[in-house]
Design a protein around this nucleic acid. Structure first.
Length: 665
DNA sequence: ATTCGGCCGGTTTTT
DNA sequence: CCGGCCGAAT
């Protein structure tokens, strides 16, 4: 008698995680919710990321294959963090899970179906300066003199086009409404947008907005594509839902709409990207778009002391347009946040530097301290002071690593090797040569567009020698396909760029170092297009993290925008003056002011243990031409005085400053 | 006609 | 500290 043995279709799940124990009631309910549309309203510091990661783990443990889960985030950092946290929770291999930013997932989808929208598979991705360059090149086509002072600047036009795509509003409507100041150019701008789109297509290139827009079009116009992704993704999860714009939310709807197994997580109080088209009413309307949506609220804050949360709550209560909310702390009170008035920005810098050193001596590590501000330019004095005192710090820089001239020069060579129609990359390369400017570049492109053999074109005597080297490099790059990015960069360096950089830059050694880092980075990628896509879609924050640069014990300086989703034991928020935070340009409408206040709320809720709110009474104007009295930010005035402790800063004793910084005030 | 160097002015936030 | 504009040089 043969032994009976039953095969089961789905193995009984072996649960590795004790969800009850590791989550609180609110989180547990959301994580283990039955399929269907779920809206998770998660306050700051309430374990939003934890909830999402455990939800993914829960799905996987219940037999959902990772490749059938789509997890959308706003930053690469968030994506990476969640994926690594899921991986550490479970023994499963998570590499097949579709997790990433909207833009990187959009790119992944678009690569597979590029030909359906008239693109080649090896299309280039234009970053913001590239897009601006291409747009500028379209303006003369309209018969407009580019020197015409009246016509809007390329940057302004880019912003308009981008806003139009992201909010899915017609250009004409925007020009009649929020962009009425450009209305006299309406007709020309509408023609221009068509030209710009055509030129991108011809260059086989897409800009950031296309990475969302074109996949959305694919999913709308090609039923079979929509159906295949609808089938593939059984579950869709979206982080930071309050920051999605109309285009992003419609993209999500098209993937998840059929089955409605979607979990979105967000906090309307932390919506800070409306200038990029984000519409936090997406959260409010979620219930309408997905009938039967279940709402879960996660409101217990594990991060901050109650004193810090009281300040946050008091501030955000001045906004009218919001879900009423009140963050509850579970931690004991440890004293009130500090309110620190200072005479000017330099004294503020001295104060921060000194206080940081004191905290460090008390045993706090520098990486647990952050200084946050509204705009990068607000931190100049502080950078000087920290440098002077040898306090190590990193800035989540305004200048992106990948946007530095030498990095873009190198990647331009790689781009043209992958995509011979990449007009922007070509022009960038030839304009490096002596005696070649816009005009000559245009002519050369006319001769060489799409070609890999450049020898047939001749340039002037001045550039003859370097042009020959460039042609030779170009030939070499085209030669054996499938070379690694690392190798290609080496050829560019040896054949041309190293010699060029020596003549061009006085700090060329440092730049060559950067290129070496870039090569190192390129080794992680299997294909050159993968590498190039990552270079375009990665911020310098992501990049430094990928190199474990921030493993050192360093102080972090950051804009509030870039600090979103992060937390530190001690947080300084500086330059809290009217006109700086809230920023003057952003106070025109009440809605904008409310967004500034949400930004302040984000800043305050980054702090776990200690919060310092500082402002200078006076600010020196650029060029040393005078000083300006500053008014304390309304965001400070709105906080009841008893919630903060005001510090009185005495000026330093005469002639001490430069010494060993242990001088008590 | 073009290129390029020097100077001035201005600077939100980011994929 | 970078980009745009203008004027000088080619």
């Amino acid at each position: 008698m043969p032994r009976k043995y039953h095969l089961s279709h789905a193995p009984t799940p072996v649960l590795h995680i004790n969800y009850r124990e590791e989550l609180n009631e609110e989180q547990y309910a959301a994580v283990t919710a039955p399929p269907g549309p779920l809206l998770v309203l998660a306050g700051a510091g309430s374990g939003k990321t934890r909830t999402l990661t455990y939800r993914v783990a829960y799905l996987v443990e219940n037999g959902i294959a990772p490749e059938r889960i789509l997890l959308l985030t706003f930053t690469n950092k968030a994506a990476r963090e969640m994926l690594s946290r899921v991986s550490s929770l479970l023994p499963h291999d998570m590499t097949s899970l579709w997790g990433g930013t909207f833009h990187s997932i959009g790119n992944r989808i678009l690569r597979r179906h590029a030909q359906l929208v008239g693109l080649g598979q090896d299309y280039s991705i234009l970053d913001a300066p590239d897009a601006k360059e291409l747009l500028s090149a379209c303006i003369p086509e309209l018969g407009i003199d580019p020197k015409d002072k009246m016509f809007p600047k390329a940057d302004a036009i880019r912003e308009l086009f981008s806003f139009s795509v992201n909010t899915q509003a017609k250009l004409g409507d925007l020009l009649a409404g929020p962009y009425a100041h450009l209305s006299e150019f309406s007709e020309q701008l509408i023609v221009l947008s068509g030209r710009y789109a055509a030129r991108k297509l011809k260059a086989n290139a897409v800009d950031y907005d296309d990475l969302l827009h074109l996949p959305a079009r694919l999913l709308t116009e090609h039923g079979e594509v929509a159906a295949s992704y609808g089938r593939q993704f059984l579950y869709v999860l979206v982080d930071e839902y309050q920051d999605t714009n109309a285009l992003q939310s419609s993209l999500v709807d098209r993937v998840a709409g059929a089955h409605g197994n979607i979990m979105v997580v967000g906090d309307d109080a932390q919506s800070i990207y409306s200038w990029r088209g984000a519409n936090f009413e997406n959260i409010l309307e979620f219930e309408k778009r997905y009938t039967g949506a279940k709402i879960y609220r996660i409101e217990t804050n594990y991060r901050s002391t109650p004193d810090i949360l009281e300040v946050a709550n008091a501030s955000i209560s001045h906004n009218t347009k919001q879900f009423p909310k009140n963050l509850r702390s579970v931690r004991p009170s440890t004293g009130k946040p500090a309110l620190v008035p200072l005479s000017d920005a330099s004294q503020q810098a001295v104060f921060i530097a000194q206080r940081v050193l004191e905290l460090h001596e008390e045993g706090e590590s520098l990486r647990e301290i952050a200084v946050l501000y509204r705009a990068h330019s607000h931190a100049i004095e502080l950078q000087l002071e920290l440098t002077r005192r040898n306090i190590p710090f990193v800035i989540t820089s305004g200048v992106q690593f990948f946007e530095q001239a030498h990095i873009k020069d190198i990647t331009a060579f790689l781009r043209i090797s992958q995509n011979p129609h990449d007009e922007i990359a070509f022009k960038r390369i030839v304009k490096l040569l002596p005696g070649i400017g816009d005009r000559a570049a245009e002519k050369l492109w006319g001769l060489l567009a799409g070609k890999t053999d450049w020898f047939s074109a001749k340039t002037g005597a001045k550039s003859q020698k370097s042009w020959d080297s460039v042609c030779e490099v170009r030939r070499q790059l085209a030669d054996p396909p499938g070379q690694s990015g690392d190798k290609l960069i080496q050829w560019v360096m040896e054949g041309f760029y190293e010699d060029f950089a020596k003549l061009e830059y006085d700090n060329f050694k440092q730049r060559l170092d950067d290129v070496r880092q870039l090569q190192e980075f390129a080794r992680q990628f299997e294909t050159v297009p993968d590498f190039l896509a990552q270079v375009s879609l990665m911020t310098s924050v992501d990049y430094s993290r990928s190199r474990q640069e921030d493993s050192g014990d360093v102080l972090r300086l950051s804009t509030v925008h870039q600090a979103k989703g992060l937390e530190w034991n001690r947080v300084f928020v500086i330059m809290l003056c009217e006109g700086l935070f809230p920023l003057a340009r952003c106070m025109a409408e009440p809605a904008q002011l409310e967004e500034e206040r949400r930004l302040f709320y984000v800043a305050v809720t980054r702090a776990r243990d200690e919060l310092y709110l500082s402002y200078p009474h006076m600010r020196y104007l650029r060029g040393g031409s005078g000083e300006m009295l500053q008014v304390k930010s309304r965001f400070l005035s709105e906080i009841p005085t008893e919630l903060c402790e005001e510090w009185e800063i005495a000026p330093p004793r005469p002639q001490w400053g430069q010494g060993e910084c242990s001088d008590p005030w």
